[in-house]
Design a protein around this nucleic acid. Sequence first.
RNA 1: GCAGGGGUGGGAGAGUGGUUAAAUCCAGCGGUCUGUAAAAUCGCCGACUUCGGUCUACGCAGGUUCGAAUCCUGCCCCCUGCACCA
Length: 408
Amino acid sequence: MNIQEQSKILMNNTEYGDEKLKINMQKELEKKLSEGRPLNIYCGYDPTAVDLTLGHIITMRKLREFQELGHNVTFLIGGFTGLIGDPSDKDKKRPMLSHEQLKNNAKEYTRQAYKILDPRLTTIRSNEEWLENLSSKEFIRLCSKFTVAQFLERDNFSKRWKSNDAIYLSEFLYALMQGYDAVKLASDVQVGGSDQLFNLMAGRILQREFNQDPQVVMTLPILVGTDGKIRMSKSTGNFIGLEEPPNEMFGKIMSIPDNAVESYFKLLTSVSDDDFLKLTKAIDNKAMKKIDLKKKLAVEIITGLFSISEATQSEKYFEETFQKRNIPSIMNEYSLGYQESNECKLSKILIKTQLSNGDKYASSLSEVRRLISQNAVSVNGLKIDEDIEVKIGDEIRVGRYKFLRIIQ
RNA sequence: GCAGGGGUGGGAGAGUGGUUAAAUCCAGCGGUCUGUAAAAUCGCCGACUUCGGUCUACGCAGGUUCGAAUCCUGCCCCCUGCACCA
């Protein structure tokens, strides 16, 4: 594959504030590629959140592309910087992590990341390696590479500066420290979310100071959540977790609004832009239904994360359960065991039992009553109008999507 | 430290002595519709209840009152000016 072809693939999906920057970055990338050596690519991840979502994998997919082209990929755990707090998501609390927790999180993180990355070709590093024992002398030296004006250029800061909102020094330092990572890794390319542009650019500034060829920064769009509006995140509840079982993932993907489908295709599947275009054309001339496009999306994503057979299986499950409204054969189970008879009350069971995502079927007796009175609960396919006692073998449906089978 | 403003349900935000489990909006949940989309529409949205009610709730702790989210006292926290420091 020639260099232009490579850079075209690699630059695909990148998003910069301005077009000029993109062109420059592409040029720099091509120059680096033309050197014919494996490049050092990295992306940093904040280890405070352990459960990865589909949002996390878009940078990983990019790293994967580099791996496939024979470059060196470093998966950098932001063990140290994560503790300082990033201004780009200021309102999130960052709990202090102990070293053990950190290690644990990192392990968990990478385990999940290997759904995308090739473990054999991935180097795991954590930036505490070099940041933790940085002396104040070295630290001040790093600081002297930046001017305040450079920081105030950043949108996030300049807005707050103008409106007299607090800007903490630690926030400045965050970018600085992160920039130092690039130096330490002798990075050729850093991948990140588009909200990280400033931090990635800081790496370039420092690299120049350290006589390194500045890294190419590749920023990728932020994935919207299942609401189709705001960034996917666990804390906003609009996420699809990487670890969710295929059936559930399929359902969640089916629930995204139509206007998010395109970006999901681009960022989370290997379907080419051309092929996607063909699909939308097929919809335009009624050869394909919109829901089938979305199903294809779900199948593509799940195939990538699990396997083709799990993907088709979850599609079948979806069709049977939600489209044909059949009672599924697989569902959560509740073991009745040797409970007292008053423990067999449906309401009690619904309050006690958790869904796989940690939610309860119902949070209180009042809620169960509400659900029953609103015709939301059925047992063995029949709506019930009062709290009943259940027995082994009963299949309960709550709302449209929640099922529970009573077992021994 | 001084002055001023404020802390109400998941969020935003009304309410300044009883008719307030607390307007309204958002989010959430459920019904109908449907493509687990969007839109629409109807209903629910503190807990418990023998469905008559009962209990708990408006930063925390006391007090006044037949009765307080609403008034008083003390405390805690947040914001905005100013001062101190430089």
